[in-house]
Design a binder for these strands. Structure first.
Lengths: 337, 337
DNA sequence: TTGTATGCGTTATCAT
DNA sequence: ATGATAACGCATACAA
């Protein structure tokens, strides 16, 4: 596995390594004779520049890190795709890390990214500022995506967590619902906190009930969505509508409704989060809260490029909105409050 | 952004870089005095070893490449998760590339992986041997996962594409279906080819119809599943059952059935591919063909480790099977042949 | 045990 | 335009 080096190329081309290097990295001061000789030798030998050695001399690795909580969550898969495409267009390779919604794995990956000397980092972080001092203190150009850490001086691009939730709650109230169960995300994430907050705010002063009984705090995984649905549906006064804070928990919760023979859209209303294609397949199709994942991914890369080049970057909040479909019909008379 | 180097650590600890290096890389020959001094200095300075420099000296980068066709496909997202976890356990960082079901992007990434000097590569490849000569000739330890390239001397771990399809077709025939439409994967992939082949073989000599009209060749993306469903459902003699070769195409096709007001399970039978959680939410739940993604991912990593250490590795085929659910009921009398 | 010196593959500086 | 050479950060062979 000893790879062919620039020295081999230079030898075969009959020039010095300096000249070979100049040709291969597109330096202007090269004769056309040298150019052809070196290029022939390089392709003939199947030469691949060693990125390690190159980035040792240069200051950049042309590499960015992408740290996500869960690649199996369709939202983050879409995000990864968007980031990766945009980064690739900008000439960057994406080093990907999956934190598995775990703080320890997240820390491990921060270390890895630092060691790999990525030129920048895009992360959907977890926890508070204390846990991120390594990254924050390192000076590594960083952008937060989807999730935000309060008090950290890191530009971010995140969804408007409040508007979508508020619209959803108001929508359900307008349809006659007075007991709206909420399956929340982990409070160690900004999305989890803000969405729960928005749910409470939308309920406060409304005709619908605001009670901690109606809230189950999950962890953005399908199993917790199922657990949440069980808990809420076992309440003495069963909610007439369910709202979940991400797609995986939505899946878990819907599955429980099905098991229990509760027909979504007739026996119980349901609002999911994130516009997963499969949700449109359900019958009735799922009403969801969604924002533009692609815009978030490409925006994150663009923002990171700004940070890397030293331009000032200002955080952005992307709109989110309610997409009304069949799972939230009018509540039949007398069923609600 | 000038990072702190081992030289800084050595200075602060009052030792030579050699001693610092020895301490930091766990070399036995170090005094406890030196150990504590160096370790204190390192943590005090926030030292992170430069992985580039390190792997320039060592022969390994402790990095593996993972080249997948489409991270938005839940099957590959699950696969990525499994690979990444197992690699991480083995002390490897995963560099991830998304080929977007495109040969050009795949080639670009092969180059990137080579340049990054990954210690090994796990790929779900596309195309034929000709397009892969770069990788094949490079000597880079490689394992194919899910997809295979005929004639390439690369160990692989892939699903048994035939059994699942055969079971599905036989199941449909047993339920009375005689016109079974098939939405196939791209013939540039082994999975696409083998599954189509299995479909044809299962039909040959059976009471059901074998005709090229009943086959639509898609590209493993949702849009092509929709196009396939349209084409097949526009046939003069409409199929009574549909079978799709991956989950994304299944989604596209189901969505078309819904649009057309064809109730799956009663108006038309449907068999999907890959056991996506959302498929169990459908009403009726989807009958699918599936194999064990986790086993495939961890198996691929283990196999790659063998190849890297020079042990002989033999290709494995993982079983796939039909999971019967509600979308393929008995055909009502007189509707079929 | 520790330090000195060398090399990994590449690019940049400085002569020529 | 080209070549010799130093330097990037780290790990090791060799000496001490």
């Amino acid at each position: 596995m000893r790879s062919v080096t620039i020295k081999d190329v230079a030898e075969k081309a009959g020039v010095s390594v300096a000249t070979a290097s100049r040709v291969l990295s597109g330096h202007p001061s090269t004769s056309s004779a040298a150019r052809t000789a070196v290029e022939q030798a390089a392709t003939g030998l199947g030469f691949r520049p060693n990125a390690q050695a190159r980035s040792l001399r240069r200051t950049s690795t042309q590499t960015i890190g992408l740290l996500l909580p869960d690649i199996r969550n369709p939202f983050f898969a879409d995000l990864a795709h968007a980031v990766e495409q945009r980064a690739s267009e900008a000439g960057y390779v994406t080093v990907f890390g999956n934190a598995n919604e775990s703080s320890e794995q997240q820390d491990r990956y921060f270390d890895v990214m630092l060691s790999q000397r990525v030129d920048g980092l895009i992360a959907a972080p977890q926890g508070d500022r204390a846990g991120l001092e390594g990254i924050l203190g390192s000076g590594l150009p960083t952008v937060f995506v989807d999730r935000v850490i309060e008090g950290a001086d890191v530009p971010s691009i995140s969804p408007d967590n409040r508007t979508g939730i508020r619209e959803a709650v108001e929508h359900l109230i307008a349809r006659g619902h007075r007991r709206i169960g909420y399956i929340a995300g982990p409070q160690s994430t900004s999305t989890g906190r803000e969405r729960l907050q928005a749910y409470k705010e939308a309920l406060a002063g409304s005709p619908a009930e605001l009670s901690s009984d109606l809230v189950y705090i999950g962890d953005f995984q399908a199993a917790s969505g199922a657990a949440g649905a069980h808990t809420l549906l076992n309440l003495p006064e069963v909610p007439t509508a369910l709202l979940a804070a991400d797609s995986l928990m939505s899946i878990g919760a819907i599955s429980v409704c099905n098991e229990r023979g509760l027909a979504i859209g007739s026996d119980i209303a349901f609002v999911g989060y994130d516009d997963i294609e499969a949700f449109t397949l359900l019958n009735p199709a799922l009403t969801v809260i969604a924002s533009d994942v692609d815009a978030m991914g490409t925006g994150a890369v663009d923002m990171l490029m700004q940070v890397i080049t030293g331009e000032p970057a200002t955080s952005r909040v992307l709109p989110s909105r309610l997409i009304r479909r069949g799972s939230t019909p009018e509540l039949p008379e007398g069923t609600g409050a």
